[in-house]
Every structure is written in C-alpha cells, then in structure tokens.
Design a protein around this nucleic acid. Structure first.
Length: 523
DNA sequence: AATGCAGTCAACCGCTACTAC
DNA sequence: GGTAGTAGCGGTTGACTGCAT
C-alpha cells in the first residue's frame, strides 16, 4: 500500500497516544505514552538507526535508548515486516503464489514457516495474501487448492492414516511425521521454481520505496555498512523461532541462512538453495521441477457455499509436528488441526441405516455411502449416457468451476458436501474416507492407463507422479472397502481423470492390486 | 460528484514458548 | 518448580484505495 507523506502525517495525527501498555511489554518506567498506529518516516529512521547501532533484539529497550514512543512489539514488527533490508517488495510473483499454495497444502496456517521458504517475504505478507485469496476463491466458488494439490493433500492424509495402523511403524516415524511406509513420491512438475530466490531488484521495488522511502534513502546515505557481509547472517531473518516440536526444522534456518549472502550494498545475493530442511520430501530433479510429498492434509473448503450452516465448527488443519506427535501413534487422540473454519450442517435425522459398516466407519462413512448412493441415483436419472471411456462424468454441477476455471472436482464437491451436509464429523473418519478414495497401491495406477488420454493441457498442467507404497497392511485395509469405493468413484470421475493423468505421465504402475478399478469405472 | 463496497495492507492483540533468575 | 521478561506467531481489526453504481 502506497502512502504519501501527507497521508502518513494525516494518519499520524489521528493516532492515539496510549498509555504504556503493560500487556504489550511497554516500559512501565517511562512516562512517555506509547504510540499506536501507522509509523512515520521519522520513526522508521529512528528504529533503523537503533538497529544499526545495537542490532536486533531487546526490542523493549528501543524506547529507552532511542526515545521512540513505541512498544517493543511494535518495533519488532515494524522492523521485521518493513524495515529489514532483505525484504522483497512488490506483488507476489506467480511462482511465489504457486509456492504459497503448495506450502499451505503442506503446512497449513504456519505463516512463519512458509515465510522461511519464501525469502524476502514476511509471514504477514503471506498471511494477507492467503486470506485474500481464500476470500476471493470462496466467493467465486472455487476450490482452495488446485485439483492436483487437493489430490495430494488427500493422498497424504491416507499415508498418515496408514501410519496410525501400526505402532511399530509409528515408532519408526521420522521427525516430520512421515511414517516408514513408502511414501508416494510426488513431483510438482508444473511447479517450476527456477526463480525460487529472488534477489531484491530495484525493478521490483515500487518507485515510492526508492524515492520516498525514508529508510531506502537512509540506507542510501551511507548507513548500509553494518549490513554488509555476514552481518545479517548471524542476526537477521529468516530467524523465525521455531516453536516447540517445530524445532525439528531447526536446520531450515541455518541452511537457509547459509544459502544467503548479503552484498555490500545490502542486497540479497541468492545462492542455490537445496531446501535441506525438507530434503527428505522436497527435492529438485534434473529438470528443476519441484518434488514434494505433502505430509499435511487439509479439508476441502471449496465451496458449497450455498449450504447454509446450522452451526460452525472450528477445525485445525494438521501440521507436521502434530502428525509426528499424534497421528503416528495408535494411542493418539484426534489429530490437531490448523485453524480452518468449516461450516457444517447438522446431520439429517435418522441417518444411520448403514449398519453394515464397521463401527469405526460409523458416521461419516454412513454419510459417504448415503450421499454417494443418492447422487448415483440422481445421476442415473438425469445424466445417463455421460460415460466416456467407461467413466461416468459427473455433470451434475456444470456451473461450478474449479481451479483456473476447470470444473470443480467431484471429489472436492463431494468432500465439501460431506463437510457441509453431515455432522458431527470425525477427523479420523475423514482420514479413513480419504484413505479409501486415494489409497496408494490401488489398481487405479495400473489400469488407469487404459482410459482415454486426457487432453494435452491436462497432461501438462497436472503432472504428478506417484509411486506405490509396499504396504500389505494398506492393501488389506483397502480390500474390504471396494464396495464403498465403487460407489464413491461414480462421483469421482473427474478426479479419476486426474489420477489418470498421474498414471499416464508417470508410467509407474503399481503391482499392488487391492481394489478394482473396473468396479469403479464400470459403475 | 457522491456513495457504497470489496480488496489490500499495516498494525494491533492475545496467546504461547523460551529463557534467565 | 515458579515467576517475570522477552520474542515470536497467528488471528483480527481498521484505514486507505480503487472500482462500480
């Protein structure tokens, strides 16, 4: 947001001068009231000067030493989000946007950790971008994640579900909660990250930043020296403190810092970055495409916005550390979830006729069967003859558009529908549901190539490669649910096409057949 | 031109984790 | 082990901007 000096001053005049805020770490010994609201240019200069002299940290001392009438928290925030010289200014690039989506699919609302992966970007920036994006897409009735990401999210969920089956496996889980099953290797061929690191370029910085930004001028006037060489390597960002069990990623900071160098002019010199913090699941292949396993799974939030909620339930999306601590353990309770508001309707009365399901499948799976069968009946009545290559294409919601205008995945629709139509929802049940629908080792990967090829665009835009887990346990788990899968996949032809694209592009067929593609495609 | 609305952004707030004593 | 101080994170708020009516 650009702000002229006049505007700045005008705003400043409106800023309340609050009394020292004890809760915010204000200096109780000072009589100077702490100021709130937008920072002025003069304040910025004072703060920058202070950091040049004293370094970062001890933010509450800023007021004492510089006379700046700001609380420590405010100073830290101002520095971290606006004044530190390694910040990248300007709009997110498409690559960064793609990266954010991908990171969010993996991490949930862990903005600080996402910021570590996006050098020069702040958690606040990313958070604002994401929230804006969510709002925009929800309004448009688009899914939060693109289909390939959504698929990977659900794919990951099933791996976590598998991990919960075996305490032995859980004990062997690595620090990030990836169990020792053979995790499907997923390649985001589409996600070229050739420019993952963006050295700040003057061209990227708004003119205001160069001409009117007092800090830029300040730095330009000879205050850069302290930032030269390794000054920031030891003191500055990304230096986000990793909370609690997130410390398993502690290598991230160091590795990242080791990949960054500041030049004498204060600009950031980018070096090849190996992402060693996620080296076990994030890699570059020879084509510099991005390979990832998505360990975190998230609810489909795309929008069945027409469903009026009867009550709201706050769910948290799983984060890595939570998976480690909870998901892999057979003694664990429900997994912790990141904050996502999901509006869920109360279940229809008397919805418990599916007594054939196991107790663990009660509730949501009943709902799955019920809705799937209902939808199937509906399709049979109104959409007969929509079969292509043995796959029934769901056209029941022709107006809904998915990622980049693609029709919304029936899987996504279905998931959203499940979320919106039935409640209370059990996270474990959801995982089980997703596990069944996307279980690796499923015959999908072997026989899917028999389907008609997708159009060229799909082939190139959703190239995702899976390998199969060698998990007999999973296969046994799967085998008992063919019937459910066959019902479900009637409504998932679209996602089957995605799977098809995956299988076609990968050329890696699994030898583990535990559920019948025929059963799914023939319904 | 005036008004309303949505989008964007900076900043604040509440909370938690870490550290030192 | 308890407490206070500090740092950091994530959610929320409010001001500004741009566009549509």
């Amino acid at each position: 947001m650009s702000m002229t000096s006049e505007t700045e001053e005008r705003m400043t005049s409106k800023v309340d001068m609050d009394s020292p805020d004890e809760a915010n770490g204000g200096d109780l010994g000072e009589s100077v009231p702490l100021k709130k609201g937008p920072w002025t240019s003069a304040e910025d200069v004072i703060l920058v000067d202070y950091v040049m002299t004293h370094g970062e940290g001890n933010w509450n001392a800023v007021q004492r030493h510089s006379g700046l009438a700001r609380c420590g928290k405010s100073c830290r925030l101002r520095w971290a989000n606006h004044l530190r010289p390694d910040l990248k200014k300007g709009a997110f690039t498409p690559e960064e946007e793609q990266r954010i989506v991908e990171l969010h699919a993996k991490m949930g609302n862990k903005w600080a950790r996402m910021a570590v992966e996006l050098p020069g970007r702040t958690d606040n920036e990313i958070k604002n971008y994401w929230n804006t994006r969510i709002k925009r897409r929800q309004r448009a009735g688009l899914p939060i994640y693109p289909p390939d990401i959504s698929f990977l999210v659900s794919q990951n969920k099933q791996n976590e579900e598998l991990g919960a089956f075996s305490s032995a496996d859980a004990q062997n889980s690595d620090v990030l909660g990836i169990n020792n099953f053979e995790i499907p290797a997923v390649e985001f061929k589409k996600l070229e990250l050739n420019h993952l690191l963006y050295p700040p370029q003057l061209a990227d910085i708004p003119a205001r930043s160069l001409l009117n930004d007092p800090v830029s001028n300040f730095l330009a006037q000879g205050h850069r020296a302290p930032y030269s060489s390794t000054y920031f390597l030891s003191t500055t960002y990304p230096s986000k403190r990793i909370r609690g069990s997130e410390s398993v990623l502690s290598g991230s900071n160091g590795d990242l810092l080791n990949s960054l160098q500041y030049q004498n002019d204060g600009s950031l010199l980018a070096q090849p970055l190996g992402f060693s913090s996620y080296s076990h699941n994030l890699t570059y292949d020879d084509n510099r495409s991005f390979s990832s396993v998505v360990p975190g799974g998230h609810a489909y939030l795309n929008g069945n916005s027409s469903s009026e909620p009867t009550w709201a339930m706050k769910l948290e999306l799983p984060s890595l550390q939570n998976q480690t601590e909870n998901w892999g353990s057979p003694h664990s309770a429900l997994p912790s979830l990141d904050s996502v508001d999901i509006l869920i309707q109360s279940p229809p009365a008397g919805h418990s006729e599916s007594g054939s399901l196991s107790p663990s499948n009660s509730g949501l799976l009943d709902a799955v069967l019920h809705e799937s069968q209902t939808m199937k009946a509906s399709h049979d009545n109104s959409h007969q003859g929509n079969e292509t290559s043995g796959v029934t294409v769901n056209n029941s919601c022709p107006d809904l558009k998915g990622w980049d205008g693609h029709p919304i995945s029936p899987l996504s629709q279905f998931s959203a529908s499940v979320f919106s139509e039935y409640t209370p929802i059990s996270e474990s049940s959801l995982h089980e549901f997703l596990s069944m629908t996307t279980m690796p080792g499923c015959k999908i990967k072997q026989e899917i190539g028999d389907l008609a090829p997708l159009d060229e665009e799909d082939d190139t835009s959703n190239q995702t490669i899976f390998s199969s887990p060698k998990t007999q346990h999973a296969n046994n788990h799967l085998a008992s649910k063919d019937a459910l899968i066959s019902c479900f996949f009637d409504d998932c032809a679209w996602d089957c096409k995605q799977i098809h694209a995956v299988a076609t592009s990968s050329g890696q067929a699994s030898g583990h057949n535990s559920c019948s593609w025929d059963a799914m495609s023939a319904v």
